[in-house]
């Protein structure tokens, strides 16, 4: 009987270890923690202190389990090199959002890719400044080889000297596979610093990133006039069309996110309904339109999850 109990305990310890490695909470563990927390609410709070950065948007925060993870990899992917502007913009807006909410003066590190720089242009600090990152907040690195870039990302994340690291990658290079991303992920976890992998024109690939966004360009918001109305035909704050491709949440999330560089704040895209023009319909229009019953329904808010009732 005693042996059995010891074996159980070993098994439980192993499970706990695996769960910790994977960053999950085991049901039994969770139950035990709840029991703990009942006795000691302060301790529970401290233990639960997983660094997350909430967006302040309910949909996003629910899907991201509380917000952007600050101790792991977040991948930002674009379909085409032509979408480099949107993808870079989203990565930079995340960095800027993060920087605005952290008191220290550490900079953001941008690790550029040589070919992407030629294809999509050099990071332009004057534009960065208008985007919410001042020129002394950013360090630019231009390693010649991918190996150097990976080393640089690892060193930066592990040193804890930078607020966030943006690693620009083009396509799916063979040398940046699961092993490398796992290694980077562990470093990020140990140091508690986020790493944004900005993958231009890349495929979906297994990695240790906790979340992966697909970024597509979307029409910008209109400019605000002082009296609160919008100036028609103007190009205002940038809007990104995001699809959360990888997360623990099984329902895919797709939304339009607007970045306000002045307030350094995200908000939901305002004119979500008319995001897609007649001439350029989305690739799978059927998936977004509900099937009409006896009459035409009004357009639902984008990104709501339809879950079926349990059959029995």
């Amino acid at each position: 009987m005693a042996e059995h109990a010891t074996a159980q305990e070993t098994l439980f310890a192993l499970r706990e270890q695996i769960a910790r490695l994977e960053g999950k909470s085991l049901p039994a563990l969770a139950a035990a923690e709840q029991a703990d927390s009942a006795a000691d609410p302060e301790g529970r709070k401290a233990r639960d202190n997983q660094p997350r950065l909430p967006f302040g948007i309910t949909q996003m925060d629910t899907a991201l389990e509380g917000g952007l993870p600050l101790d792991g990899i977040t991948e930002i992917r674009s379909l085409l090199m032509g979408d480099a502007g949107a993808a870079s913009g989203f990565a930079l807006s995340l960095a800027s959002y993060l920087k605005a909410r952290q008191p220290n003066e550490a900079p953001v590190l941008w690790i550029g890719d040589v070919v992407s720089t030629q294809e999509a242009g050099v990071p332009y600090s004057v534009g960065f400044k208008q985007f919410g990152l001042s020129s002394r907040d950013v360090l630019y690195a231009s390693p010649r080889k991918l190996d150097d870039a990976l080393w640089l990302a690892e060193t930066a994340v592990a040193s804890g000297a930078v607020v966030a690291t943006i690693l620009e990658i083009r396509g799916n290079p063979r040398h940046f596979g699961l092993t490398e991303s796992r290694r980077l992920g562990l470093r990020a976890k140990a140091a508690g610093r986020p790493l944004f992998v900005l993958r231009h024109a890349g495929e979906e690939e297994a990695s240790s990133a906790s979340f992966r966004f697909l970024v597509e360009p979307a029409p910008a918001a209109h400019r605000h006039l002082p009296d609160g109305s919008m100036l028609g035909g103007s190009i205002g704050h940038p809007v990104f069309k995001l699809t959360l491709e990888k997360s623990r949440n099984p329902a895919p999330l797709s939304l339009l996110l607007e970045w306000n560089p002045h307030d350094r704040q995200f908000s939901l895209g305002r004119d979500a309904g008319e995001a897609f023009s007649f001439r350029n319909p989305p690739a799978h229009p059927g998936a977004r339109l509900p099937a009409s019953a006896d009459r035409q329904d009004r357009a639902p808010a984008l990104g709501t999850v339809m879950a079926f009732e349990r059959a029995s």
Partner: peptide, 21 residues
Amino acid sequence: SLADFVDRVSARLGADCLQVV
């Protein structure tokens, strides 16, 4: 740690690798 990081990178990948504007 930031200075240390800059030194390490510059020592390894050359001073031109890590730049500021």
